[in-house]
Design a protein around this nucleic acid. Structure first.
Lengths: 339, 339
DNA sequence: ACGTCACGCTAAACCCATCTAGCAATCGAT
DNA sequence: ATCGATTGCTAGATGGGTTTAGCGTGACGT
């Protein structure tokens, strides 16, 4: 039922030439191969009439180039917004005429090894090795010496073997401080989030925030420690509100934490941003859904994915491997007000 | 730098046999091809020592089977939870020893055609044609007669050419009605959401709900019409609350609408579920983040993706094409209480 | 002694392209 | 008339597997 695809041989026969000639014409190499205009036209006509499309597997077998990229990630599901990284990578791949395989390792090295082997067996040209939250990783041995770009992760090596694309979390921290300062705040500024230094993003955001305020001679009024999800933040902020004078600004380490903070503030009868300003990170859909809408510093997943593929296809091999930090822009909404 | 892969020829030479023999041994066809145990062992040893892995492109060129599937979707980004469908499809593919390509058409037929052609050029075995929200589609001509399963979409044809995997939205409506009735409610039950019959999911959910209540002799107290997002729902519910006695139950057509309803109820000083019970559809992350946690009827994206690939690889061609509706289970949480 | 059969293996075609090396015909110059 | 260069094209090797058809050998029957 699917129409039988014509082969190069059939095109050649219909045009009355050899396979070689047909190949040269279709590859646009008629000039250096000195194919007559007449023959060229015949081949082109035949190809069109037969609706010829080259079998890329056959071509790849010969040329060793498949124009496919594999995106291997630890988890795809955990953070729904991480899908945007895939989206960006896909767009980048397509823009370069490549197709994208995806694979998931579930963080297990057995699965990872199997998966990468499978990709290798299918001769993929290059790999995007991705993590769904920013962290340090060790690149699997199977990828040694191949074109690889790390997406949202990096190695501890002083002289990395591959490019890394990560969000500029420290810069985002600075941006947060700047936004708060520009709104006119100098006091009552609190951090909310997981302050243990386990998580890369949290650690860097915090560092950036401290640097930013430090540079302006402003001291944080306090910190509220909680996990990364709403109910933990709700409880921690509620407890903090019960224990002293209300803060003026809450800088939440991500949007889910901000949601918890919103809930606690509302319950305490405090208005946003009238009584308390809230600033956050990630700029997930949630930020636009809250009332008032949440000012948040965007995690540019799409850009990360795009950049990763861009780097893989453009720069890899030609440029000294380095860590590229992608800017995290501030999305101004309604939750950050004047003192 | 990447280790040079051994070819079958090298294995054969090391084992002192021909390529054919090595191929038969490694394909497990030594019995019908009568290969001596001795030769078999030599080939196996050689393959192991050389760390032989077959070049699947070469194999595919001959066998016409690539063990790859293409997932072509209209949009990947719009609904973050739709990523779970991809996740499920991926898991299904891997479980069958296949690898998964992904592609996005952005809803444009030009892009779609180009994309499918690209997949075809790479000889993919089968297609998952997906939509990120349930709807009617027309299957592109290029896919005619090929193994295709529709994911989250269906055709209007009376006798469909392909299997369709969609959520059982009507059943979900019945479940919603059942859950409300079992909680003890018979009055003051309102629908919130987009009641225009444009959207497949909304229409079917609504139909199921009406049927479910109708079967129990219960009449809906009213409907509150709004768009699919929080602020629209917030305004609509606020307006409804201002205009009459408070409802007893709000059945929201999705979680974002429920979020808007929560905001309106809270602002009106109504408690959930003390004054008003809320029930919703989708069971997105949001449902677990709200206070109180939202009882929601799950949209089983992962299952849909899994089922699609399962059907594609198992049933396609062997079974009469049909629409398969995947059950939407109720996730009981705290927002639905007694009257 | 010769035909038959089972056994164990291999040569070579095949899949569909790319690409190198070189052939035949024409033209121009001497 | 002869040689060399140019033109226009093709045969055939190549990539790395799978698979069909069949070959040589030894055992067995008659």
């Amino acid at each position: 039922m699917p129409p039988q695809r014509a082969t190069l041989l059939q095109v050649a026969q219909r045009a009355g030439v050899s396979r070689s000639t047909a190949s040269f014409v279709l590859a646009g190499r008629h000039v250096d191969m000195r194919i007559s205009e007449d023959a060229r036209q015949r081949v082109l006509r035949a190809a069109q009439e037969l609706d010829y499309r080259p079998n890329l597997m056959a071509r790849s077998l010969r040329t060793k180039v498949t124009k496919t990229i594999a995106l291997v990630s630890d988890t795809l599901a955990s953070d729904p917004y991480a899908g945007r990284a895939i989206h960006g990578a896909l767009a980048g791949a397509v823009a370069h005429g490549h197709l994208l395989f995806i694979g998931e390792t579930e963080g297990e090295s057995m699965i990872e090894e199997k998966l990468i082997s499978d990709f290798l067996d299918r001769q993929v040209d290059a790999f995007v090795y991705a993590s769904m939250f920013t962290r340090y990783v060790r690149v699997p041995k199977l990828l040694k010496g191949r074109p690889v770009v790390l997406l949202n992760c990096l190695t501890r090596a002083a002289k990395p073997a591959h490019h890394s694309i990560i969000p500029d979390e420290v810069g985002a921290g600075w941006s947060a401080a700047k936004a708060v300062i520009e709104a006119g705040h100098r006091e009552g500024i609190h951090m909310v989030g997981n302050l243990a230094h386990h998580v890369f993003a949290g650690r860097e955001r915090l560092a950036g925030i401290r640097e930013g305020f430090g540079a302006a001679g402003i001291k944080l009024a306090g910190t509220i420690d909680c996990e990364w999800w709403p109910d933990s933040a709700y409880e921690a902020v509620s407890a903090a509100l019960a224990g002293g004078p209300p803060p003026k600004v809450l800088i939440c380490l991500n949007d889910r934490v901000a949601l918890g903070a919103y809930q606690a503030l509302r319950e305490a009868g405090l208005s946003i941003p009238g009584d308390v300003s809230v600033l956050s990170f990630d700029d997930s859909d949630l930020a636009a859904w809250l009332r008032p809408q949440l000012t948040s510093i965007s995690l540019p997943h799409y850009q990360l994915g795009w950049q990763a593929v861009e780097t893989l296809l453009d720069a890899a091999g030609r440029t000294e491997p380095a860590v590229r930090r992608v800017e995290m822009p501030v999305r101004y909404r309604a939750s950050l007000g004047k003192p």
